[in-house]
């Protein structure tokens, strides 16, 4: 087990709850009594007040074009991230941490988590690229993609996600895309229950997912 460490690149928008999560993790990883976040009533990530409702937001499923609402199936969770597959630094870190988090879930819970990635770079992220990327990390995935800038902007705005594609010549495939790197966890009513800033530890993702799946009454 890799001990949690504060990452230098963690973004500034980190709230005290997040820090509380770190400190608790220290207790459980160190010599103190085994603390379990899953047994507590609070979530380790950031909980907005009021909670963000995104059931009315949708984006097309990449391959079929069928709109997918930002809502999990009954009794499940939908984890949504806005990113792009050429992203060499930020996205693979979040994705690999999330993969570990889902793998570490108690038996039977991983089947209740779907990971959706909405591409902010539809020019390079063709449907099969995006699906392949997600499939590399997860079993249950949704590849979301639109070529309509306004549609993407509307969905991103609903979450407070920002992105900016670097200016580039047509055909140049090496441009960079800046984007908010927050991971959103949505329940079956379309409510964002918790969000994880960039650099959030996978152990805390696991406990948040476990808490939300096993104690859905927690608000």
């Amino acid at each position: 087990m890799v001990p949690p460490r504060a990452r230098r690149g963690a973004p500034v928008a980190i709230f005290l709850l997040f820090v509380a999560g770190f400190v608790t993790a220290c207790g459980s990883g160190g010599t103190g009594e085994p603390a379990s976040l899953a047994a507590t009533t609070t979530l380790a990530g950031v909980v907005r007040a009021p909670l963000l409702e995104v059931a009315d937001v949708s984006l097309p499923e990449a391959a079929s074009g069928t709109p997918m609402a930002m809502r999990a199936d009954d009794g499940e969770l939908l984890v949504v991230y806005f990113g792009y597959t050429s992203c060499p630094d930020v996205c693979p870190m979040t994705m690999s941490d999330l993969r570990v988090a889902i793998e570490d879930l108690p038996d039977g819970l991983a089947e209740k988590v779907t990971v959706a990635m909405a591409t902010v770079d539809p020019e390079r992220d063709q449907p099969e690229t995006l699906a392949g990327y997600l499939g590399h990390f997860f079993d249950r995935t949704a590849a979301l993609r639109t070529e309509d800038p306004a549609e993407l902007a509307t969905a991103a705005r609903a979450f407070g996600v920002q992105y900016e594609v670097e200016d580039h010549e047509p055909g140049d495939a090496t441009y960079d895309v800046g984007h908010s790197a927050i991971t959103y966890v949505i329940d079956d009513t379309g409510t964002v229950r918790v969000e994880w800033p960039f650099g959030f530890e996978s152990e805390h993702m696991t406990t948040d997912l476990t808490t939300l799946l096993t104690r859905p009454e927690i608000r």
Partner: peptide
């Protein structure tokens, strides 16, 4: 870069994006 880059329809529906800053971008 506005929320969603503001390709075109940045000032729709009488809302100004400046009233609502989004999450910082990782760049």
């Amino acid at each position: 870069a506005g929320m969603g880059e503001g390709m075109g329809g940045e000032e729709g529906e009488g809302t100004t994006d400046t009233s609502m800053a989004g999450a910082p971008m990782m760049q």
